[in-house]
Amino acid sequence: MDRKHHWAWPSFSGNTLTKDQLKIHFQQEYAVYVRDFPVFLARIHGQNPPSDVRGMLARNIYEEDTGGLSLSRSHPELFNEMMRGLGYHAKEFQDIQLLPASRRYRNWLDRVSANRDWVIGAAALTIFVEGSINDRREIHEPSKPKTQSEIEDIVRQHPLVRYHGLSPDCLDLVRAHQLVEAGHRQDAYAMILPLTREPKRQEAVLACLKKTLHLWLRYRDGVAHACGLKKR
């Protein structure tokens, strides 16, 4: 996860892109994994992992698909609310045409989430897709539940609010994440690591994560290039 960083990310989290450029980014994110993330998790759950793992996956699916642990609205719905706040129309997030590298990454997520070995799919989705370059720090220094005031400070400092005029009222997706994510990364690693001590499975999980990283980097390259960005 230390390598889950893309050269164009400062542009997407800064103040230099137009809303037309941001729309390309958000359309690809939505169609590649945001819209169907609960489906990916449900496929892994359907492989019948141990009961404690099923419980963790079930809670994650419940939150993603209903918001039942936070704000009572699904995360894809909250994403769409954020898009409306930026001035995009709902129809612009229907029948999205994936870029070639986006399609390859999405196809991989479809395949790996249906892998007969649930550990492989869970590693790709809960370790990689949900994780970030900050995972190592989060594991060693777990974040504590945030107060409502702290969450609102995070919302007000969000790049879309600061640079692109998004109303904080449209960022319930960020609020939902902050409400449920304390300890979330620890759960993901606790689900996977105890079952990867056997060398053959460990090698399989590492190979899966390396391929996922490779395809993700190419996916992000494709989005950056579609937005007219060039690596310096």
Score class of each variant (00 low, 15 high):
residue 189 Y to N: 02
residue 192 I to D: 00
residue 179 L to R: 13
residue 184 H to K: 07
residue 183 G to N: 01
residue 199 P to T: 07
residue 176 A to H: 03
residue 188 A to I: 05
residue 202 Q to P: 04
residue 203 E to N: 13
residue 182 A to S: 09
residue 177 H to D: 14
residue 178 Q to E: 15
residue 195 L to F: 12
residue 173 L to I: 14
residue 179 L to C: 10
residue 176 A to E: 04
residue 188 A to Q: 03
residue 187 D to Q: 14
residue 184 H to Q: 10
residue 200 K to Y: 12
residue 194 P to C: 00
residue 189 Y to E: 02
residue 175 R to G: 03
residue 168 P to T: 04
residue 178 Q to Y: 09
residue 174 V to M: 09
residue 170 C to P: 03
residue 172 D to S: 09
residue 197 R to P: 04
residue 181 E to I: 07
residue 201 R to G: 03
residue 184 H to E: 07
residue 177 H to E: 15
residue 179 L to V: 10
residue 192 I to G: 00
residue 189 Y to M: 02
residue 169 D to L: 10
residue 179 L to P: 08
residue 170 C to L: 09
residue 191 M to S: 01
residue 185 R to H: 12
residue 200 K to W: 07
residue 197 R to D: 11
residue 183 G to E: 02
residue 192 I to S: 01
residue 188 A to F: 02
residue 175 R to H: 04
residue 179 L to S: 08
residue 186 Q to D: 11
residue 192 I to H: 00
residue 203 E to F: 11
residue 198 E to C: 04
residue 179 L to G: 10
residue 197 R to I: 11
residue 177 H to M: 14
residue 193 L to N: 12
residue 193 L to W: 12
residue 171 L to D: 02
residue 176 A to T: 06
residue 194 P to Y: 01
residue 176 A to Y: 02
residue 182 A to E: 02
residue 168 P to W: 01
residue 193 L to A: 14
residue 199 P to Q: 05
residue 193 L to E: 11
residue 187 D to C: 13
residue 188 A to C: 07
residue 202 Q to E: 10
residue 181 E to Y: 15
residue 176 A to I: 05
residue 173 L to K: 06
residue 192 I to P: 01
residue 200 K to Q: 15
residue 198 E to N: 07
residue 181 E to S: 15
residue 181 E to W: 12
residue 203 E to T: 14
residue 194 P to D: 00
residue 181 E to G: 09
residue 172 D to F: 05
residue 181 E to D: 15
residue 177 H to Y: 15
residue 180 V to R: 04
residue 190 A to Y: 11
residue 199 P to N: 06
residue 186 Q to P: 06
residue 189 Y to G: 00
residue 191 M to C: 04
residue 203 E to K: 12
residue 196 T to Y: 05
residue 203 E to G: 14
residue 180 V to W: 08
residue 177 H to V: 15
residue 174 V to L: 10
residue 180 V to P: 00
residue 171 L to F: 03
residue 178 Q to T: 14
residue 182 A to T: 05
residue 170 C to I: 08
residue 188 A to T: 02
residue 198 E to Y: 09
residue 173 L to P: 09
residue 197 R to Q: 11
residue 173 L to D: 07
residue 198 E to A: 08
residue 177 H to C: 12
residue 176 A to V: 06
residue 202 Q to M: 12
residue 189 Y to K: 01
residue 178 Q to A: 15
residue 186 Q to Y: 03
residue 179 L to A: 08
residue 201 R to P: 02
residue 190 A to M: 12
residue 185 R to P: 10
residue 184 H to G: 08
residue 202 Q to N: 13
residue 169 D to T: 09
residue 185 R to T: 15
residue 175 R to K: 10
residue 193 L to D: 13
residue 172 D to I: 05
residue 180 V to D: 03
residue 202 Q to L: 13
residue 182 A to P: 03
residue 173 L to Y: 11
residue 168 P to V: 00
residue 175 R to Q: 04
residue 188 A to E: 01
residue 175 R to F: 07
residue 169 D to F: 10
